[in-house]
């Protein structure tokens, strides 16, 4: 693969369930590469493990097993100053800008603090940099002395973005960065993130349940279901020709902003199973309209079903055998 910045290898995260021997299987044996300068979208419904993935790749939580390599360095082997050095290259933007900013710190302090920890520059350079950051994210110079409660949700998310950029990162995890915002403000933030990526050559992991936002932002997209990646392809292919039955159901469930296109849906019945007791074989088989006997018996693996041009990984027995139903 060309120039991977982040390599995820057989990553597993299990959370213990208090008072029992059970575990929640949040992430199960995920492999994922993110290339320098691209945006990889991570989509799935609640409980699919996408947010846990975001935390794991930054080592904000420890994995149960598996590796995350950033620029070829295994994060789990690093500690102390070596870990801190890598951390300054990777940052995260959270969903809720009302909870992720310290209400007692002014914008100035919020932006200065990460610089003090990670950058070796003096006070006047830091102050100069705050001014540059504010301009970059579309805030005015007079905003620097104000406090988070004086800003709207969209403006707060701009502050959070400026804070992430303060330490000159190369890689950003965007965890539902616009989900808490009004529609008209969402578009501003998505445009801002795109512009910053072009200007600064950033690499993004864009986590969202919003498929249209993911399509808009991503070069490649991974679809997760119950802790596993079930399909991975470039954005165009995934939306034009999804292969996994779950991806197909997900695509057809998206409300389309065109009332002339009220479509027939691939209907999913039932609910997402408990991540404590995963179904045997394929985890999706309990809701899959095309499940067969072998789906309960064997765990499917991700296989390349694409053509010559690009990789298209799918984890499905039927697709692998070329037997998936046409719709």
């Amino acid at each position: 693969m060309a120039d991977p910045m982040l390599q995820v290898r057989r990553l597993v995260k299990q959370f213990p369930v208090e008072g029992t021997r059970d575990v929640v299987h949040a992430v199960t044996e995920v492999d994922l590469d993110i290339r320098r300068g691209e945006t990889v979208g991570l989509v799935g419904e609640s409980g699919c493990g996408k947010t846990t993935m975001g935390r794991l790749v930054l080592r904000l939580i420890e994995s149960t097993s598996g590796n995350v390599l950033f620029d070829g360095q295994d994060l789990s082997t690093l500690s102390g100053s070596a870990l801190r050095r890598v951390r300054s290259k990777m940052q995260i933007i959270f969903q809720n800008p009302f909870a992720s900013l310290n209400p007692r710190m002014s914008v100035d302090e919020i932006l200065m603090r990460p610089m003090r920890i990670h950058l070796r520059i003096n006070g006047s350079e830091r102050s100069q940099r705050v001014a540059e950051l504010l301009e970059k994210v579309g805030l005015r110079p007079e905003h620097r002395s104000r406090y988070p409660h004086e800003f709207s949700g969209g403006q707060r998310q701009r502050i959070a973005i400026a804070r992430a950029l303060a330490v000159e990162p190369q890689f950003l995890v965007l965890d539902e960065p616009t989900s808490a915002l009004d529609v008209s403000v969402q578009a501003q933030i998505l445009n801002l993130l795109k512009r910053l990526q072009r200007e600064m050559g950033l690499t993004y992991l864009f986590i969202s349940h919003d498929l249209s936002a993911v399509r808009h932002m991503s070069d490649r997209i991974a679809v997760m279901y119950l802790g596993k990646v079930v399909e991975l392809a470039d954005a165009e292919t995934l939306f034009e020709a999804p292969k996994h039955p779950y991806t197909r159901a997900l695509m057809s469930a998206i409300p389309v902003t065109n009332p002339r296109l009220r479509r027939e849906r691939v209907r999913l019945t039932g609910d997402i199973p408990s991540p404590i007791r995963l179904p045997s074989g394929c985890a999706f088989r309990t809701r899959c309209p095309w499940a067969e006997k072998r789906c309960a018996e064997q765990v499917p693996t991700l296989k390349d079903e694409g053509g010559q041009v690009s990789e298209h990984l799918v984890s499905c027995h039927l697709v692998a055998a070329g037997e998936e139903p046409r719709v």
Partner: peptide, 24 residues
């Protein structure tokens, strides 16, 4: 118009969304 332009489309990919400036 702004509200509809703000929503990324599933059918076609545009480079930039027509965001409504300012805040409510």
């Amino acid at each position: 118009q702004g509200l509809l332009g703000s929503i990324p489309s599933i059918e076609e990919k545009v480079d930039w969304l027509q965001a409504i400036p300012g805040t409510i």
